[in-house]
């Protein structure tokens, strides 16, 4: 499945992933391929994207939402920054 991390100023990530773990408003939520369509508010915490070819990317996010539709995960937030 595809995932992207989008802030008002730019797209921080776009690519194929095997799983997404996001800090939802009420705790972490994990998304695997073929997840049902979903929109959830995000809280503050670390967003983890497992790359399809291995390798994990981490982002610090606060607020915004995560949307899943047609095997595409979009994390849309006003505050996001890449973590090493």
């Amino acid at each position: 499945m595809k995932a992207s991390v989008v802030s008002p100023e730019r797209t921080l990530y776009e690519g194929d992933v095997s799983s997404v773990v996001a800090p939802a408003f009420d705790g972490e939520i994990g998304i695997l391929p073929r997840h049902a369509p979903l929109v959830t508010l995000l809280g503050r915490g670390v967003l983890r994207l497992e790359g399809a070819g291995g390798g994990t990317r981490r982002f610090d996010v606060a607020g915004g939402f995560l949307q899943v539709a047609d095997d595409i995960v979009r994390v849309v937030t006003e505050t996001a920054s890449a973590l090493a």
Partner: peptide, 22 residues
């Protein structure tokens, strides 16, 4: 799409409408 909405459409709009204006 028949979205699963967490926590609810209202709560999500509550958060997104100000973001939309900004």
């Amino acid at each position: 799409h028949d979205y699963l909405l967490l926590p609810s459409a209202e709560a999500i709009l509550e958060e997104l409408l100000p973001a939309y204006v900004r």
